[in-house]
Design a protein around this nucleic acid. Structure first.
Length: 456
RNA sequence: GGCCCGUUCGUCUAGUGGUUAGGACUCAGGGUUUUCAUCUCUGCAACAGGAGUUCGAUUCUCCUACGGGCUACCA
């Protein structure tokens, strides 16, 4: 094949679904590795389902994930994206062709059988509502799917489908085929849900006498219960994942591996590496469950391996969205630094950082430790030492604490648990020096006093 | 119901006419880390079933079961 052109063809009904993201990704990877073009085509032939702003939303989400569309073939280069509702004349011309050849017929109502062999003149149609249907013959039809092989259908089982609606808009079947041909689409890579309507499309190609593209039907993304992935448990909108602090690169990496694998033990791939390694012929036939646990793990890998400086802009946005006020950017750096190796998402980091910003609640399992006399003794010394400092630094605190440890002959958990409990509310958490530095002198002392007085 | 597609650990998957059926996530346990996490080691766990073909089938064929998709003047 000399010219590779593929397309992602969503309808503008709202947000970008992760299933759509994967379809777009596979198209993108296939286009890039073949020096081809990826076209975005908006299939908005159902005017009632149109949602305002959906198109820019779609493009934005896709771009955030690194999927960028090429311009179409030369004669379309005024637009990067093509909208079917702007191309109605093409479909009307196509319908005329079909009508002329007797491959389609006009119906005045839903009882289409009786119109099958009728021919209306222009005059008869004046002021009449009508739609157009495609004539499906009674023979067998087979076509090839690149990952499934030969697929056979008995066309006698299919009703004549509508190709032009009463409102003058084409249905998916017609618009899809006309556009794919017009845009020189060489490979149709789309979800498996389209497999059953492919014979209609193939028939259309035959009627028009157009060259068939290669069909590749991708397996579906599934809910844990194996049904088609839907909004039920957890979210499916790409933006929701992004807003929760899943990194676009991680999402792409994860989704690429749902239905495809490199046949090695490697699992972490940048989008450029994917372009190199992806092979559409290795794509799985069976559907893949969208396993959030694995996504979480993958995102954790990316978080851990990404520099704080790169994470910062994203983290800042998410912290602000969650009503956290960042006084000092260096605090945010510390928090992200601390959180990125122990969280799955940036939102988790926000959660983890909660005690920095909110009033302390003690872990109920350790209340007795708080009341312990040894703990009180530690608090007393700590308060005294911190009060003596102008400014608290991490290194000062470290020194003070090891000093206390030596003096009281305490180490490890015996030393750190009581202190962290007092200033953090729990025995586990960030390094004590870091907590006190971010909390600053006043707030640290306040918490230590509160702990000192606990149970009194 | 009809048509189409599918079926290797719970999940994502590798793999072969003869393998201890491999990896990853999850889970469990150990080590490292003066907390936790990271990291690391170990363990649990799969060829849907039945007939063929074959010296031998998880691998090839057929059937059954199960799962999913489609069955709109939605895409």
């Amino acid at each position: 094949m000399d010219n590779i052109n593929v397309r992602f063809a969503p309808s503008p009904t709202g947000y970008l679904h992760v299933g759509g993201l994967r379809t777009a990704l596979y198209n993108y990877l296939f286009a890039k590795q073949n020096n081809g073009n990826l076209i975005l085509r908006i299939e908005d032939t159902d005017q009632s389902r149109k949602v305002d702003g959906a198109i820019s939303n779609l493009v934005e989400s896709l771009n955030k994930c690194g999927i960028i569309f090429d311009k179409g073939p030369e004669r379309y280069d005024k637009n990067d994206l093509f909208i079917q509702s702007n191309r109605l004349h093409l479909y009307h011309d196509a319908v005329e062709l079909l009508l002329d050849d007797g491959y389609a017929y006009i119906c005045l109502d839903d009882n289409f059988q009786k119109y099958r062999d009728k021919i209306f003149s222009k005059e008869e149609l004046v002021n009449k509502e009508y739609h157009v249907r495609l004539k499906i013959p009674n023979n067998e039809l087979s076509f090839d799917d690149d990952i499934r092989g030969k697929i056979n259908f008995d066309l006698s089982l299919i009703n004549d489908p509508v190709i032009l609606k009463t409102d003058g808009f084409p249905t998916y079947h017609l618009a899809n085929v006309v556009d794919d041909h017009d845009m020189h689409i060489s490979h149709v890579i789309r979800g498996e849900e389209w497999l059953p309507s492919t014979p209609i499309h193939v028939l259309l190609y035959q009627y028009f006498n157009w060259e068939l593209p290669v069909f590749i039907h991708l397996p579906l993304l599934l809910n844990p219960d194996k049904s088609k992935l839907s909004k039920r448990q957890g979210h499916v909108a790409v933006d929701d994942f992004l807003n929760d602090g899943y990194l676009a690169d991680a999402l792409i990496n994860f989704i690429a591996l749902l239905g495809w694998n490199p046949k090695t033990n490697d699992e972490l791939f940048s989008i450029d590496q994917l372009i190199n390694q992806f092979n559409i012929n290795n794509v799985q036939k069976a559907g893949a469950v969208f396993d959030i646990d694995k996504l979480n793990w993958m995102n954790a890998q990316y978080l851990k391996n990404t520099e704080v400086s790169q994470l910062l802009p994203i983290a800042k946005k998410i912290f602000i969205n969650n009503n956290f006020i960042i006084k000092d950017e260096s605090d945010l750096v510390s928090i992200v630094e601390f959180g990125k190796s122990r969280c799955n998402t940036i939102k988790d980091i926000v959660q983890l950082a909660n005690p920095f910003f909110q009033d302390l609640t003690y872990n109920p399992d350790y209340l007795s430790l708080l009341a312990d006399s040894k703990s009180k003794a530690i608090y007393l010394i700590l308060i005294e030492k911190i009060e003596g400092l102008q400014l608290v630094s991490e290194s000062d605190i470290k020194l003070i604490i090891s000093d206390i440890g030596n003096k009281m002959n305490l180490k490890g958990k015996d030393l750190f648990f009581p202190i962290r409990l007092a200033i953090w509310g729990d025995v586990h958490g960030p390094d004590i020096g870091l907590i006190i530095k971010i909390l600053e002198k006043e707030k640290s002392l306040e918490r230590l006093h509160r702990a000192l007085n606990y149970g009194k």
